[in-house]
């Protein structure tokens, strides 16, 4: 009898520990964008931090699936219903790709895990141009409407959405020139092939330090608190136009991901988020730290989806 009690108690003691889910296979970390971009960098950073601090019992495998503006990656994860060993990092194409291309996919198909950061956007011009403030630039654009070329990443994605918002707020017209990646956009600005860009801070930071480009305004409600960036006014202060846009850097899982697995990933990502390496990366790239999970995350994504719908309807970027 005593033995039985002991056995039962051991069983009960052991069971809760065994119930805490842990990955039993390598984790597939999908990047719905090409190698070398912002999302890819962050995914590989998370992989590296996990490896360095031994945060995951099984290895993480980063896989790029960039086809169809990321649709390939999203549909791949959507097809892995109930899988606990796949996660995906998202950028704004989570909203823009289905809206513009009509690919049958919505963020609600996926299981939200955590939001890590929000990326900023800045209006840049070449440093050799005479425009010292956004106001001067806006005036020049107004004078020769349609003659100024705005460079950006991709078509009907975040850069073009911001450009259209700016056009509508100022009552001007830009010629929008799409490029493949943010780094290429900034170099085309340095080479004077376009007149202005709406790059992420990190994409132009080094050219700015070298004195080749000039930031005019931040597309956000407040200034960037980092010491290097805090002198740049918001678009509202500079132009009176109330435009703010942030890009999501968050993690999702496949549909119906087991609850225990979601909990494990949340805890794992929190540990990654708290490492000094991750903090330094955010600060260097002027990304907004924005860790959020559960209902808070879902609420933010819902709001962002509605925002994209509105903006893309106004800009005429929805699938015809």
């Amino acid at each position: 009898m005593n033995v039985l009690v002991a056995l039962v108690s051991i069983l009960f003691l052991v069971t809760p520990a065994a119930a805490a889910w842990e990955p039993t296979k390598p984790i597939e970390f999908v990047v719905p964008a090409g190698t070398g971009g912002g999302a890819d960098q962050m995914a590989r950073l998370i992989h590296g931090i996990a490896e360095k601090h031994k945060l995951s019992p099984r290895p993480i495998v980063v896989v790029n699936k960039s086809g169809g503006a990321g649709a390939e990656g999203f549909l791949h994860v959507k097809g892995k219903k109930g899988d606990a060993h796949t996660i995906i990092i998202t950028l704004s194409n989570l909203f823009t790709t289905p809206l513009h291309t009509g690919v049958p996919f919505n963020w609600k198909d996926l299981t939200p895990v955590a939001r890590l950061a929000l990326d900023q956007f800045i209006l840049w011009v070449n440093a050799e141009t005479p425009y010292k403030t956004a106001k001067e630039y806006a005036a020049a654009v107004k004078e020769k409407s349609g003659q100024f070329k705005m460079g950006g990443t991709g078509s009907a994605q975040e850069d073009q959405i911001i450009t259209i918002q700016l056009e509508q707020a100022l009552g001007v017209k830009f010629t929008y020139v799409p490029f493949k990646g943010g780094g290429e956009v900034c170099v085309n600005l340095v080479g004077k092939h376009v007149d202005s860009t709406v790059n992420n801070p990190i994409e132009c930071a080094s050219h700015w330090k070298a004195g080749r480009v000039r930031p005019l305004a931040v597309f956000d409600t407040g200034r960037i608190p980092e010491p290097d960036w805090k002198d740049i006014p918001t678009v509202k202060d500079a132009l009176g136009a109330d435009i703010s846009y942030n890009m999501l850097r968050g993690i999702f899982g496949p549909p119906d991901m087991p609850k225990e697995a979601v909990e494990w990933y949340v805890a794992f990502l929190k540990k990654v988020y708290d490492t000094p390496e991750f903090k330094e990366y955010l600060s260097k790239g002027a990304l907004k730290p924005a860790f959020a999970t559960g209902a808070e995350y879902v609420k933010w994504v819902e709001g962002a989806e509605q925002l994209h719908k509105d903006l893309m309807t106004k800009g005429g970027l929805l699938k015809k």
Partner: peptide, 21 residues
Amino acid sequence: PTAAVMLGGLIIWGLQPGPML
């Protein structure tokens, strides 16, 4: 593309790629 990945590496190692390097 290879250089693109290396650039990502530079950022992760704490270096800022670009003309100031």
